[in-house]
Design a protein around this nucleic acid. Sequence first.
DNA 1: TTGTATGCGTTATCAC
DNA 2: GTGATAACGCATACAA
Lengths: 343, 343
Amino acid sequence: MGKNVTFSDIAKYTNFSKTTISRYFNNPDSLSDETKQKVRDALDALNYHENKVAKILARGKTEFIGVIAPNFFFPYYTSVLNSILDTYRDYGYKFIVFLENDNSEEERKYISELLSYNIEGLIVLSHTLPSHELQQLGIPAVAIEREDEFISSVNTNNFKGAVLAVEKLIGDGCEFLIHINSHNPEDKKMPAYARIYGFEETCKKHGIPNKEFFVSLSNNHEDYFKKVSEIYSEAKEICCGKKAGIFCSNDIIAVDFLNAAFLDGRKIPEEFEIIGFDDSPQARQAIIPLTSVRQNTVEIAKSAMELLVKQMDKGKRSKPKSVVTTLEHIVVEPQLAERQTTF
Amino acid sequence: MGKNVTFSDIAKYTNFSKTTISRYFNNPDSLSDETKQKVRDALDALNYHENKVAKILARGKTEFIGVIAPNFFFPYYTSVLNSILDTYRDYGYKFIVFLENDNSEEERKYISELLSYNIEGLIVLSHTLPSHELQQLGIPAVAIEREDEFISSVNTNNFKGAVLAVEKLIGDGCEFLIHINSHNPEDKKMPAYARIYGFEETCKKHGIPNKEFFVSLSNNHEDYFKKVSEIYSEAKEICCGKKAGIFCSNDIIAVDFLNAAFLDGRKIPEEFEIIGFDDSPQARQAIIPLTSVRQNTVEIAKSAMELLVKQMDKGKRSKPKSVVTTLEHIVVEPQLAERQTTF
DNA sequence: TTGTATGCGTTATCAC
DNA sequence: GTGATAACGCATACAA
């Protein structure tokens, strides 16, 4: 940082005051054309570069948004992060990104780091901290696809996603339905839990026999495949003969099931129809391209930013502490990406 | 931002000066135990939170590192970014992340944004800006797996990766070798280009007949698959009868080839052996788990940070402008992740 | 249209 | 051990 050129330097060079230089940037209309020209010349004569840190300190606005994401094992998070980062072009906010560590103490440290940089808002994808703790922070915050009782959020319409999938399976003539979910059946606060309800209610509505399986969350793929293979074997037993429809809560499970069935010589989608969730790269590259419920991550990111911006604006107008805005929970509609594991 | 508690407030509360409060954080040994206790009490009585922006302005160090990554189509970039973000625990640097837009003008804007925040260093994964332009920036910068003539960098030993793959194929008895690469054969400055040399030289060394194919880079997977399927057909013709080994420059191509061959009834790895590059999730979830050259992204990120830190430290000791350190190009060794598409 | 003075919340340099 | 005071680089009320 070799002696950066500052307003003072420009001021000296032009014989104007620092204020005038400041105005050149913030209120140029109030300057005469001649002055503007002189400043402009000085600016590139001295090769000036703005210093946002100083600007932040003086004005209090950082244009920073903190993002805390889980790791990238599930491509869904990658995709959302991608979309969030892309909003830079529309909003100009910069993102300081942290990766969750499955450790709430660590996560609190991340947050206090972020706060010390005067971030204007926080986007939380990780699940380690309860939303009431996030609310206490007193800064605009929005949750994405996680427990969101006390803060605003944007979630996929998981229920609808499940309904779309199951009705597709039923419409295609499946006589027995299976749902495989990776979430611990206990954490009912996770939005994704609604996929289970969606499955159950749609089955009930159409009177279709069904069964649910759960595989415990794991970052190790071998584990996953072994468990899913076992589920496949069991599933084959259960629906002996009848055409079965499999709806999985993510594409990883779905592809594993597909592989197990395919290697076992099943005809797909004739004997088994399979639908995943997330529309990940794995879905597209499966041995039989996988039908999957696509979450609109672009829309999710956009909505998150809108919520955040709305909250941040409010914080400015009224009294500082009134960040206690009414909660808003935006729901983004999913879509069925139909490929070859369904008809 | 409701009136943050500052050193002034603590000072008033404790009847000490701001200086003493500052010392409490930066040089606590110089304070009496009694004073420290008083300050400590005041700190949580008033619920103080540090303000790094002010600290930065006063001290000049931001602990920010800028990252410019390409999009997340190739899981390799995701993985590297993941590893970079994880280094926070070891180094404490925060990352402001930008996503490339394939537009050099945009990218220059990102960089000037980053500079205005006084980032201490820059990690560049994107390819839109030539390295000599990055060098001009005058801040510590390191390139990862991209053209790196004028700045330090860390790259996978791509040549070695290819050699590992090809020798494995030869060792397994492949009589004809095929290389499929997605890079434009023109951009020889990309480190990944060495995968081609590695393929060619190893083939030559062992006197194995071979052929190379190129598919043009694309973010659209359907495109890819169609092209790779055509290549598969052609490949089948060429090596009629002889056992063929396929080495692909990324897993996406490899999985597509695998799928095409598998669906065509080929026995794998008996008739075709296939090796990809990157060891991505797709490789693990392929219908036959794919053997792939694993890039050690953790090591890559770690090396990048080490290079950066070294440069940043130098910049502090000597004169500001001496960021013109000698270039260093770190090479990280890849590893063959053997799965079922090879013996 | 332009300038003066003051503040933003720290750290750093002298003092005592 | 502790305290004034001046930076750091910019924004903003208030003057002129």
